[in-house]
Structure formats: structure tokens, C-alpha cells
Amino acid sequence: MRLDKFLKVSRVIKRRTLAKEVCDGGQVLVNNRVAKAGLEVKPGDKVELNFGARKLVFEILEIKETVPAKEAASLYKVIEH
């Protein structure tokens, strides 16, 4: 699954267009490498998001095309907030 789509499906970022902008702006690292929106992610990948002064690091546990809002957080495990 594309990184921008995963960020939207998992509800880490609410809109896919915003997820794409954040990725293309160099604010997302996957496995310690700068990642573009089209990067294919898989379970086990470590994702680091930088929102200005805030930083979120999480590991992808599962990939699903759609998921109810209540279950969205089950797709990843937060490592650092």
C-alpha cells in the first residue's frame, strides 16, 4: 500500500492530499530514509512523522484497504510520541 494511503486509512493524517503534501515535503521517514508518498509500505516498517515541533514514531503492524474508525489505531504501534 502507498504510504500516503496508509496514513489516511490508519487515520494518522485525516486527508490523503495532506498526507501526500507531508510526504513530498520530506517530513516522513520510513526505516530512517526520507519517503515519498508513493513508497510501498509493509508490516514491520518504522515510520517517523515530523510535524514542526511534534514527532510521531510508529511501527506498521497490519495493512488493510479500509478499516472502521474505531479499529484504525490497531494498524500501527506507537513507539515514540
Rank of each mutant, 00 (worst) to 15 (best):
V78C: 06
L29R: 10
A37W: 09
F51A: 03
V78P: 01
R11E: 02
E48Y: 10
T66N: 13
E59C: 06
R2K: 15
V12K: 08
T17P: 00
R15Q: 10
E62K: 09
I79Q: 08
D45L: 03
F58Q: 07
E21K: 10
I13T: 00
I79G: 07
D4A: 07
R15I: 06
L18W: 12
Q27P: 01
G26S: 03
R15L: 09
L56Q: 11
E48C: 15
E40N: 11
S10H: 09
K42I: 07
A35M: 06
R15W: 06
K14F: 05
E80Q: 14
E21Q: 14
E48D: 15
I63V: 12
A19T: 01
K20W: 02
G44F: 03
L29T: 04
G52Q: 05
V28W: 07
F6N: 00
V34A: 09
V28C: 02
V30D: 02
K46C: 09
P68W: 01
T66E: 15
A37K: 12
G25C: 08
V12Q: 06
V67G: 14
E71M: 14
A53C: 10
I63A: 09
G52I: 05
M1G: 14
V47P: 04
R2E: 12
M1K: 13
L39R: 15
R2D: 14
R2T: 14
F51D: 01
F58I: 03
V67D: 11
K42E: 15
V22L: 09
E21C: 06
K14E: 09
K20L: 03
L7V: 04
L3N: 01
D4T: 03
R33E: 15
R2S: 08
L61N: 13
V9R: 00
C23V: 07
N31H: 04
K20F: 00
P68K: 14
G26F: 03
F58E: 02
E40M: 11
K20H: 00
V12P: 02
E65Y: 14
V57S: 14
V57W: 03
V12Y: 09
I63N: 12
V9K: 00
L61A: 08
R2G: 03
A72T: 06
G25Y: 02
V67C: 10
A19W: 09
K46V: 12
V30H: 00
S10T: 06
V9P: 02
D4K: 04
R15S: 11
E59A: 11
K8P: 00
D4P: 05
K36V: 01
V67F: 05
L61C: 10
L7R: 03
V22G: 02
E71T: 01
A35L: 05
L7Q: 01
E62R: 13
G25K: 05
S74D: 15
H81W: 12
A69D: 13
A72I: 06
L18Y: 15
R16I: 08
A72Y: 05
L7I: 06
E71A: 14
K55L: 12
G38R: 10
A72N: 08
L56I: 11
I13E: 01
L75T: 02
I63K: 09
E48K: 13
A19Y: 08
L75N: 00
G38A: 10
K36N: 08
E59M: 13
